[in-house]
Design a protein around this nucleic acid. Sequence first.
DNA 1: AATATAATTTAACCATGGTTAAATTATACC
DNA 2: GGTATAATTTAACCATGGTTAAATTATATT
Lengths: 231, 231
Amino acid sequence: MVQDSSERLFSQSVEDYVKSIYLLQQDSGSVTTSELAKKMKTSPAASTKMIKHLTENRLTEHTRYHGVRLSPAGEKIALEIIRHHRLIELYLHQALGYEWDEVDAEAEKLEHHISEEFEARIDKMLDYPLTDPHGDPIPTRELEIAPRRGAPLDNSEPGDTLIILRVRDSNPEALRYLKHLEMRLGTILKIIEKQPFNGPITLKIGEKTHSIGRELAGHVFVERYVREVVD
Amino acid sequence: MVQDSSERLFSQSVEDYVKSIYLLQQDSGSVTTSELAKKMKTSPAASTKMIKHLTENRLTEHTRYHGVRLSPAGEKIALEIIRHHRLIELYLHQALGYEWDEVDAEAEKLEHHISEEFEARIDKMLDYPLTDPHGDPIPTRELEIAPRRGAPLDNSEPGDTLIILRVRDSNPEALRYLKHLEMRLGTILKIIEKQPFNGPITLKIGEKTHSIGRELAGHVFVERYVREVVD
DNA sequence: AATATAATTTAACCATGGTTAAATTATACC
DNA sequence: GGTATAATTTAACCATGGTTAAATTATATT
Ligand SMILES: [Mn+2]
Ligand SMILES: [Mn+2]
Ligand SMILES: [Mn+2]
Ligand SMILES: [Mn+2]
């Protein structure tokens, strides 16, 4: 729409671009026009125009032909939207029984349209949660955010015993397949074999053995598992 | 925004105009340009333009200078949005503890952004409810809708014993004040006195007596109360 | 029937956020 | 250092949904 209802300061488009820049610059420091265009599924020209607009509004810093990064004000907005997104995902999962592959699409829209009141109420109802259904950290009300946990599963070596801490949230088919393999948050697994030439990884979960491709393994983030110590 | 995300067929603006036409034509049969503009808080020129656009898309029928009415397709969309709105209002009230004066504003935005999945899930969770927190009927999944119940309180006469079936949902201050007077859905009251020249109405609720103005009384819809018969 | 007034429509304009095609700039390689 | 290629930016365009001001039409009154 053109009219921005009630009290929102920025359009849905601006919010989504800023959020995408935040997520992309986590990996790369700064974000190129074409990376952003790809993530937003628009043309590079649209990306350039929006970068110009964001920079005029002091949400980003931009040096022509050399990528964009968020200003402190931009980061604040990104974290607000990410907080909405992840709280909504968790709420849909916990309160309404959504599966972990269904929550992202719904949250992608709702994140722009809930009030601070709604945010506060679901935050309280969920008892101030720290992670979303994919293991991503939820920014606090003060917009502090914990670091992302885990390293990609395809970086691990045969013999390692690992625990799943996080998964990429954006690919529903991958998420459904992982669930089908019983690979959830907290699942413990052992790497049995890793085929060369980017071949499949064989792993053991409970008594079962599975073989998964490198691409799928790249969606799963793990850390070494040390048996929990009971006092 | 300009881009209409994912699967929605019509913009938020179109949805809100169509919904407003539906609500206005309930009273008046057909809706004038200026009535619509007033309800949408835009200029008459914007209203005219949208009416033209809706008519080109076969959501309304329009004869120049003589008002607009919904086509069957337009009515379908209106009922879908009204169903969203009222289900969301009830959900916010029941599941998240919103007061009846808070739900309308939040639902006004969310109604455009929930999926059919979300609609189905809250409908089930609320056990397929028939009325919203203001006593308005909720269209069924097949978009059948019950008639609005009750007549304006200011049409009743001294001596009448009445039950509150419905209230206007759009004025939060009025709703808060009614709640403060313990005038809720299902409240039983008796008209004691009605001052002439549009003067106040005195009524008795339980042991308490209140006096309210005609304007506020026009927000409350009642029917004659007949003591419930127990088998 | 003519006319004043109010309602409605049209015209010209604007901002947002898209598109494709052309121009510009960076950079990798010979 | 010149040049091919890829990335980026600019230009020209479009749709949506607003605005205000001017033109048109309906209608109520004399
Ligand atoms: Mn989004
Ligand atoms: Mn997530
Ligand atoms: Mn609305
Ligand atoms: Mn309502």
